[in-house]
Amino acid sequence: MSNLDAEPGEIDCSGRPTTGVDVVTPRKVPLGGIRAMIVNRTLPTRDRSMIGAWCFADHYGPDPVSDSGGMRVYPHPHTGLQTVSWLFEGEIEHRDSAGVHAMVLPGEINLMSAGHGISHSEMSTDATTVLHGVQLWVALPDAVRDDPHGFQHHAPESAPLGDAGSVRVFIGELVGTSSPIVTATPLLGAEILLEPHTEVVLPVRSDFEHGFLLDTEQLVVDDVDLAHGDLAYVGPGVSTIRLANPSDTVARVILLGGTPFGEDIIMWWNFVGRTHEEIVEYREEWESAATRFGTVDGWTPDDRIPAPPLPTSRLKPRKR
């Protein structure tokens, strides 16, 4: 997915662990024009910029396509990151400049690694009446951020959480269930369903920081209440986290985790880099149709999202 902010500002990205539970309230961002999809963005925000290497989280729907027009994201570029698509409802067609043509389906992860550079498009299909899901980005560490691009797919099975609910682990490992998806840093990604008026104590890696993004109306994370769209952050140093569902309906939450990212990065528009000069170069190469980003089959050279203007100030990473 593209960051379609008309005037994307500089985003200081760091893990900056804290203790206890912090709640990040989402901000609403329109993806496109008048009939744009509205997404809830919890990463990055002023309150938190990263959870492990997770550096971007958009949560959307359920949106009737007849109202929103669906997802129509034309070819756009990425560098230095991986995109992770996870749907609850709907169907999205993915095409990229590496020649990959794949469908994004509910309960199946598609991970695209931009590496040195890639471009792709994402379009909801004609069969889609409702779109509902999350779009996530992962920052790549310096050692591999200029590697060739790649694509991975996995359809995880549902595993029980005792009598309290179930989990689908799409990245990493949780409660004895693991995913074959390969990542450059230790990560966790999972969809948890919690039955009404139940709770579960999750065993987690104490060297990870964790985020719980609530898709439904109520959830309690270690005695802290969440509302729809909120993200609860729990820093490293804990080995268990308690989730409780006080509502009369099933609670759904996306769990993101990872070791605190040890590098300063600059994230602007759809690029992750390390210096102001790199971001300027990426933008110029996209605007000049350079070979770094290639072309996406099925689209003409005019079918592309132009890069917004750079801010007037110099882009700087946050220093730890």
Rank of each mutant, 00 (worst) to 15 (best):
S247D: 12
D67W: 06
I254Q: 01
L256D: 02
D215G: 07
P26S: 11
G258K: 00
R145I: 00
V296W: 13
H149M: 08
D223F: 02
P8K: 07
T185I: 07
A290H: 15
G273R: 09
R168N: 14
E7F: 13
S239H: 08
P8F: 09
F56W: 15
P148G: 04
V296R: 09
E10K: 07
T185K: 05
L161K: 08
S113Q: 10
F208Y: 15
D230L: 06
S166Q: 10
Y282T: 14
S85I: 02
V253M: 11
R318S: 09
H149T: 01
G90A: 06
V73T: 13
L187I: 14
L256Q: 10
G176A: 03
E108F: 00
H197I: 03
H276W: 14
Y233F: 08
T185R: 12
L256A: 08
Q135H: 07
I109K: 04
A114H: 10
A184M: 06
G117W: 09
R205T: 00
T45C: 08
S124C: 15
W269R: 03
S166K: 10
G61C: 08
I38Q: 15
V23E: 02
P8R: 08
R304S: 13
L193G: 14
T42Q: 09
A227M: 00
D223G: 05
H153D: 01
P317Y: 05
P180W: 06
E93C: 02
A289F: 15
R95D: 03
G237D: 02
P308W: 07
G9R: 04
T249G: 04
D5M: 14
P180R: 04
A57T: 04
R41T: 12
E191S: 07
S113G: 14
S313G: 10
D126G: 04
P141A: 06
V220W: 02
T185N: 05
D248Q: 11
N40M: 12
H78D: 07
D264S: 15
R283S: 13
W137A: 05
E157M: 10
E287M: 15
R205H: 03
A155S: 11
G172W: 01
G150V: 15
D12L: 10
T259H: 00
L256F: 07
G172I: 04
P62T: 12
V65M: 11
T177H: 07
P308M: 08
H76E: 12
